[in-house]
Design a protein around this nucleic acid. Structure first.
Lengths: 232, 232
DNA sequence: GCATTTTATGCTGTATACAATTCTGTATGA
DNA sequence: TCATACAGAATTGTATACAGCATAAAATGC
């Protein structure tokens, strides 16, 4: 049960995390020598990791100029939200066919377990983690590993903006939060799935993501200001 | 207007093409030294290219054992077809909102131009190229570059099976082919888009891809036999 | 003072070397 | 006959060196 992870893997994980959280500023050039020494590896494994991240959409690459952080623009983020709608709605359609009642019940149990914490936690990171986890579990019911893979990739690429968005939401609705009075969006989707009501489930999912998509432009604006203000 | 492509880029293009066409057999191990000399480059740029291809889903990687061709299974291909449905249908929905009449007319003109050749060519490679090109142009109407990017990736990963499938279809319907008598599937989709009929367009697209998805298992079987029979 | 050329610095792109690991084939024993 | 152990070969993983390019800085001309 050992990990036996290579240098590339360690570097990859670390740099991916940095890129996801915009520890490189948008469009910032990445200095390979500096980063490699900072990570305690040589440039060779670092560059291999960077190449993977380019293919995943976390970084860009220009010949002769090196690697750069991806840019951060409302358009790009909206594009990703739309891709997320495509993926998650498709997964849901397949889940209606393929997920057993037991499997759906397991996800429902997960929801029951986490919802109290989800509704009271002040840590946006924790809340987002739970949210992502729910969506992944739901997508896995489709039995389509490609859709799950794509969703994971998209989630990681919009995480920073989602985090900002979530902070925004919590700041606004700090007083009145879902405490079971109203059915949560997640519960509505899952209930529709359990009832094998494809249309209702997909519509709920679409709307659920759509609401965030609409906030994307604003969230990106705030994200920028947050990125370029040194003090937190 | 020079290309100024680096060694990595050249190697990347070449190996990607090889992987797409299963010039490496499914699950086959890739020998880095041999391949690098064959491509006239050293192992360093080759490995960078291989890492990109892993991230894109063309290859897999096992620590300490190296790079392998992706496996070829009906399940994987079905997964990809479903992902394609997700992407293309979403793109179509957005195109209904965003594509101008002129832009749609341009794609229609492309269809008019290519359809004669499309219906008579005996080269499955050519036919598939035209088909992919049409679908990409259509997806671009969505103005969502992420969806286009994903579609390109998926298309390249299922190309080999699609090629086999197409050969199968042409062999069967060799006599009676669409010569304008019946409206082509592409034309139906495009007309619905032009009429801003989202439901009809999406339904047509879904069905269009669904038909191929249903043939996937059979096509994979034939693909296997073709891959492991030396003579063509 | 501004634009332009030249020079210098730093960084990237690739090859190569070598250590570490895995694989293959053979021999040995039950 | 099968399993195991071992030795040699092959292959991968990483560091390092250096050439070539791009960028920044300095110098020159107007």
């Amino acid at each position: 049960m050992s990990k036996a992870s290579s240098s590339v893997d360690r570097v990859y994980d670390r740099v991916r995390h940095m890129a996801a959280n915009f520890e490189f500023k948008p469009d910032e050039r990445i200095n390979e020598s500096a980063l490699s020494t900072a990570l305690g590896a040589s440039r060779t494994p670092l560059r291999e990791a960077l190449n993977r991240l380019v293919a995943e959409g976390f970084l860009t690459f220009q010949n002769g100029r090196g690697f750069f952080c991806r840019s951060l623009s409302p358009e790009k983020i909206v594009d990703l939200y739309e891709a997320r709608q495509a993926i998650e709605c498709e997964a849901l359609r397949r889940s209606v066919e393929r997920a057993s009642d037991d499997e759906i019940a397991t996800v429902l149990a997960y929801l029951d377990d986490t919802e109290p914490h989800y509704n009271t936690s002040d840590s946006t990171v924790e809340v987002l983690e739970m949210d992502e986890d729910f969506h992944i579990r739901l997508a896995q019911l489709s039995k389509n590993s490609e859709l799950v893979r794509l969703l994971r990739n998209i989630n990681d690429r919009i995480r920073y903006v989602r985090l900002v968005d979530l902070k925004m939401i919590l700041a606004k609705k700090q007083i009145a939060r879902n405490k079971g009075a109203k059915l949560s969006a997640h519960r509505i989707i899952l209930n529709a799935l359990a009832a094998r009501d494809e249309k209702a489930a997909v519509a709920a999912m679409r709307g659920h993501i759509e609401r965030r998509r609409e906030e994307a432009t604003e969230a990106v604006r705030i994200a920028y200001s947050q990125l370029y203000v040194p003090a937190d």
